[in-house]
Each structure stands twice: as structure tokens, then as C-alpha cells.
């Protein structure tokens, strides 16, 4: 923006800062509130926005310790938050690795090989990707219910079932990786081909080492997406000890059993690692985002 005189420049600067600060106040309000609530006594908020009698009770419970109040009563942790966090991380890591494994070779084929039906397949992927898995939950439930009768470790309420159903997220990532392969100089694989390399060797020894950065981006993107997934996880995982964070966190805020304070501490504890991961990775993620609406 080009501004011609100094006073109007300053006025506009103040205006811009004002708008931004007001907006950031709105953004930060829920976070600061939750931080304050996590130190507040009891599970119902009453009165102050600033905790008058700060207590570590909710934090102890979230970390899985028993807490002894001043009057001697011992409070047990209501839910295994750290176990849920571990479940989420485990499922997210394995499923993301599986997604990478399934999508990388085909992305290579789409970028570099010639075969019949390629264009149609790519277009299909793009359209299919918009079907939300959450709407096929009935089928997913029925399928894994049936599978569980034959193979118990892959039935409802098991992690392998959820991981398998999460592999459906590959469509988008194929496009992202293909986009990166497209940008690799064709002279490289031409040279390899002249030296007698098979496509597999070109893929294994040229493309794979070159594409480590984009594979890392896809891994983080899919990890974050999967950790956030709620509908499918909520119907496949029923047992408290099997739950992921997204399913478990919901347990805190039922009308009959409203644990607002405990929830606040658990939310910060479990949300922080994912938030930090995202902020660290966000510089690299933006390029991946413009390939399609991953989140939001």
C-alpha cells in the first residue's frame, strides 16, 4: 500500500494495530480462560476469571496422579489422559506411515510413467477425496464388526481396525507428492534411464532420496489430520482404555458428569504437543495446504 502523507500513514498504522490486537484478544480469550480454569478449584466455574485459590489438583489428575485435598479426601484421576494421548500418537504414526507407503509409489507412477487411464484415475482421486469417511461410518462399523467375528484383533474396539479405516486418507496425499515429483528435473531420470536404470531403480535411488522433505510434510499433515479425527474413531472405539484423545476428551463434558476443571488441564496437556508440532511445521505445511482443503 502506498500512502502519500505521514499523518495518514500513522493513523492507518494505529488503526491496523488496533484491529489486530482486538482480534488477537478474541483469539486468545479461550486459551487464557482455559489456562485459568485449569488452576481453579472445583469443576464448576463460579465468580472470578482469575483463580483466587490456585490449585494443582486438575493438573495432577490429568497427569494420572491421585490428589489429596486439604481436608484429606483423595481424588482419583477420572480418565487415563496420558494413555489416550499415547493411543492417538500411536495410531497417528502407524496410519501416517501406512499412508506414505501406499501413496508414494503411485504418486511416482502418476508423475513419471505413461499408462492407460492415468488421467481418469487422477481425476477420480480428486473427486473421491471429497467424500467424507464420516458418512460411511455405518458401513465401516458393519465391516469391522463382521471382520472381528473372524479375526478378533481387527474387530470393533481395536486399534488395527481404526488404522485400517484411516488409510482412506491417502487420496489427497498422492496429489501432493505427485506435485513435488513433477517439479523434479526430468533430466535426472533421463540420465538414469540412459545408464540403464529401471523405473524402480530411478524411483528408489533418485526420487525417494530427493523427496524426503515433501514426505515429511505429508507425514506431519496426515498425522495432524488423523489425531483430530473424531466420528470414525468414536464409533470404532468404545472401551475407555482404547480411546484416542479426540474421543476421550468428549467424556469430560457430559451434562451428568461435567468436569470442566479437569478437562481444562487435560486439554492443555494433550493439545500442547500437537500445537507445538504444527507451529514448528507450519512453514513447510503451507505449500501442502494449497493442494486442497485438508482442514478448515
Amino acid at each position: 500500500m502506498i500512502v502519500e502523507n505521514a499523518t495518514s500513514l500513522r493513523r492507518r498504522k494505529i488503526l491496523a494495530h488496533g484491529v489486530l490486537i482486538a482480534f488477537i484478544a478474541l483469539i486468545m480469550f479461550p486459551f487464557l480462560m482455559v489456562l485459568s480454569i485449569s488452576f481453579r478449584e472445583g469443576n464448576f466455574s463460579t465468580g472470578n476469571l482469575w483463580p483466587s485459590n490456585p490449585t494443582l489438583e486438575h493438573w495432577a489428575l490429568a497427569l494420572g496422579f491421585e490428589y489429596t485435598r486439604e481436608n484429606g479426601t483423595v481424588v482419583k484421576p477420572p480418565y487415563p489422559v496420558l494413555l489416550w494421548l499415547w493411543n492417538s500418537i500411536k495410531i497417528g504414526l502407524i496410519a501416517s506411515a501406512g499412508i506414505l507407503l501406499l501413496s508414494t509409489t503411485s504418486a511416482f507412477a502418476f508423475a513419471r510413467m505413461r499408462f492407460r487411464g492415468k488421467g481418469a484415475l487422477l481425476d477420480t482421486l480428486l473427486i473421491v477425496q471429497m467424500f467424507p469417511a464420516a458418512l460411511a461410518v455405518v458401513a465401516i462399523y458393519a465391516i469391522f464388526d463382521g471382520l472381528g467375528r473372524v479375526v478378533p484383533w481387527m474387530g470393533v474396539d481395536t486399534h488395527p481396525a481404526l488404522i485400517l479405516s484411516y488409510l482412506s486418507a491417502i487420496t489427497l496425499h498422492i496429489w501432493t507428492i505427485k506435485g513435488y515429483f513433477d517439479s523434479i528435473d526430468p533430466a535426472l531420470d533421463k540420465a538414469a534411464q540412459i545408464d540403464g536404470a529401471t523405473p524402480w531403480q530411478a524411483f528408489r535411488y533418485i526420487f525417494l532420496p530427493l523427496s524426503i522433505p515433501i514426505l515429511a510434510v505429508v507425514f506431519v499433515l496426515s498425522f495432524i489430520f488423523l489425531v483430530n479425527e473424531y466420528p470414525v474413531a468414536s464409533i470404532l472405539l468404545r472401551n475407555t482404555d482404547q480411546m484416542t484423545l479426540a474421543v476421550g476428551a468428549r467424556q469430560y463434558l457430559y451434562e451428568q458428569n461435567y468436569l470442566w476443571g479437569d478437562f481444562a488441564a487435560a486439554a492443555i496437556l494433550s493439545g500442547l504437543p500437537i500445537t507445538v508440532l504444527f507451529l514448528l511445521a507450519q512453514r513447510f505445511l503451507i505449500s501442502g495446504l494449497s493442494e486442497g482443503g485438508v482442514k478448515g
Binding site: 484423545l245 479426540a246 468428549r250 481444562a264 500445537t275 507451529l279 482442514k295
Partner: peptide
């Protein structure tokens, strides 16, 4: 950056 399920519940 914050997981959506946490923000929504908050």
C-alpha cells in the same frame, strides 16, 4: 494449530 476437537470442547 490447536487440535479442533479441543477448541470445540473448550
Amino acid at each position: 494449530a490447536v487440535p479442533a476437537f479441543i477448541s470445540i470442547l473448550v
